[in-house]
Design a protein around this nucleic acid. Sequence first.
RNA 1: GCCCCUGUCGUCUAGCCAGGUCUAGGACACCGCCCUUUCAAGGCGGCAGCACGGGUUCAAAUCCCGUCGGGGGCGCCA
Length: 432
Amino acid sequence: MEEMRMVRVRFAPSPTGHLHLGSARTALFNWLYARHTGGKFLLRIENTDRVRSDTKFLEEILENLKWLGIDWDDEPIYQSRRFDVYREKAEKILARGKAYREGEAIIFKVEKGRSIELNDIIHGKITVNTDNIKDQVMIKSDGSPTYNFSCVVDDSYQEITHVLRGDDHISNTPKQILFYEALELKLPQFGHMPLILGPDGAKLSKRHGVVSVEEYKKEGFLPEALANYLILLGWFPGEDREVLSLNEAVKLFDINDMSDVQAKFDIQKLKWMNGEYIMKKKTEELLPLIKDRLLVAGFDISSVADDYISKIVGLYKIRMKTLAEFVELADFFFKDDFTVDEEGKKKHLDNEEKKESMRIFADRLEGLEAFSQEGIEEICRDIVEERGIKAAAVIHPTRMAISGKTKGAGLFEIMEVLGKEKVINRMKGLKR
RNA sequence: GCCCCUGUCGUCUAGCCAGGUCUAGGACACCGCCCUUUCAAGGCGGCAGCACGGGUUCAAAUCCCGUCGGGGGCGCCA
């Protein structure tokens, strides 16, 4: 009895806040299902709450979806424009004697003692007794529809075949089934995916800190990495695969492979994943993103050559986990008053012999015509040999002096990119 | 309180439906070694888990029951 009707799924954000990671994941799975099956992925804007809804949020949500790589079919529908439809449907139920008025509201009468069964795609059979369901408001006193009612009217209107949403809607589903029956509508299939939990095991929410896509974007996460990580929470592509593009995921996606167990959000793994994407990205692709970062961080790069920035990106792309980290790691390339690691300074610079070695190093560098990595290293190695000291005794103090840090890219490559003048000035303690 | 969902390493998961091939596999994190001018990256190795108790069976992570634990929902919010 395989039905041949085309898959139609939807994502129904409420523009009352930022796009939450959990919602983004829900959108991702719906999209994946639609694209895998060749069906349609539709949008519905649930803006019935006139007070809290804001077009600013709507724009951001749509922008975030696109950013993540999600596209949608047809024009989104807006619930705020369909109030007359909800009222009409509610009146119909009222006329059949299955609802009553109280105040200005229209309330659905729930028949007691019934058992409602739903065959969830992800959880299997779920049974609820209507004794546990109160009468349900369909139209509120202010004339707006309730979530459960408008949801049913619109899922039916949009001919949704599969309602894939978060676990937290499981208890809504029997109520909605009652509305489907009252309106004599065809039921879609339901699939409730487990929620994302915070590190403490509670539903991921604002109290866990950063939970909106917008904030992750601002922290310098790549959309590919965020999307990749999110779809791994609750779905397994098979063959121990973890890093995969959305295109590959579309090919491999099978809703039957979805887990019915809640997953905790692990920022560590997300960072690792982000690092993977950053280091595999071409430097040219990273360049504009990094320039944005520098601008946001307050650097004036109007007179800085792209070529210079590109070289630095090349040195640091395997070292940063987020784009934001670039600024911390490479600040000294863009300003002379860079931050200095005090412990490192004490360890590597508060020593006369080391300073002396560094002074000699700086003097000899003055005579170096082509300021290349190789030439610099040769001079360094010569000094080390002449003075019978360890290379580290010159390298660490120099790194501290020119970058203020104890870690980072290879010293000689840093020096070449920074350039002769700055390197020598910093080594001699000038312009600090 | 009532209702519903759920329980494999610290975390994400494979295995469970069709019980033996599981001395339970992979990934993140962590630890160690190698490489090395530091930090990363890379290579190699290590630590660590079937919530518990009963069944069923020759055999259970896999099937059944119970206990305990975790989560969600019970709005004229969405």
